[in-house]
Amino acid sequence: MAAPAIDPNAGLDAEPILRVEHLTMRFGGLVAVNDLSFDVARGQITALIGPNGAGKTTVFNCITGFYKPSSGRIVLMSDGALPGPAIDALTDTSMRSRRVGDGGIYLLERMPDSEIAAQARVARTFQNIRLFTGMTVLENLIVAQHNWLNRASGYSLLGLVGAKSFRDAEARAVEIAVAWLDRIGLKGRADDPAGALPYGDQRRLEIVRAMCTGPVLLCLDEPAAGLNPRESAELNELLLSIRDSNGTSLLLIEHDMSVVMEISDHIIVLEYGKKISDGTPEYIKNDPKVIAAYLGVEDEEVDDAAAELDQ
């Protein structure tokens, strides 16, 4: 097979914010993720693609702490921390995180889910939307700001007596929420139950709810699933604006190639839990392995089929 002529890493020189190393996840006998390593670049959009059942959601669940990986290391480097010996030193201890300079390094495989969201500041959405359907749109976004608001309410003591400091904090939280709602055009529906929104709006609401936690890394599991082309385009815009104006790094799983190719800076392709390709959209588009994976045939079969045609 001819080597692709395109440089897989053209224009990808950003430092990593997340480094996944030798990640393996087994469910009984099934190896859903097999010795997977990749980087997510800071301030960029990285896409994780692959056929159904390739293990993409499982990777997300390992990164966000919902599953405990069978083995491997997942390091998040926030606020300018860089890969380096500090990480190995931390790995040798039994600690989960350490501050380095202005930033911090976090060994996500050691942390439970809610701490990953709260301390390492990795937010996520779900393949099956998980909004608080019986709460209003606004409430959803306020709940997302729970941790700092709860501190501001003096762990409810100040809040119970209606202290001004808490009322101010709450007003500020509402402001943040409303600003996000404005960005997705849902301000008018702030008082509607989230479960009553159309599907596309629910998807975007789930994304901004995750953003309300103030993440450094946002993981989106198939954000464009079930969207029509117009909604898809709006989503692209939203994701790009999150990258550009909030400086949040994005990792997304997506089947919709129009979304993936248009907005990703970097793509990783999984098949049967293994990485089969990794590079720029341009590179991925032309990688025969990827094409074969999406056609669902082995390389040799492609060759065989070609040979048959020739005869």
């Binding site: 889910d113 990953i116 709940v143 309410s153 709810r209």
Partner: peptide, 21 residues
């Protein structure tokens, strides 16, 4: 916040955890 977190917990515990609660 605590009361809203209770109700959010009732609605969807997994989502709560993903929000750092």
């Amino acid at each position: 916040p605590i009361g809203r977190a209770w109700e959010a917990l009732r609605e969807d515990e997994i989502a709560c955890r993903s929000l750092g609660i």
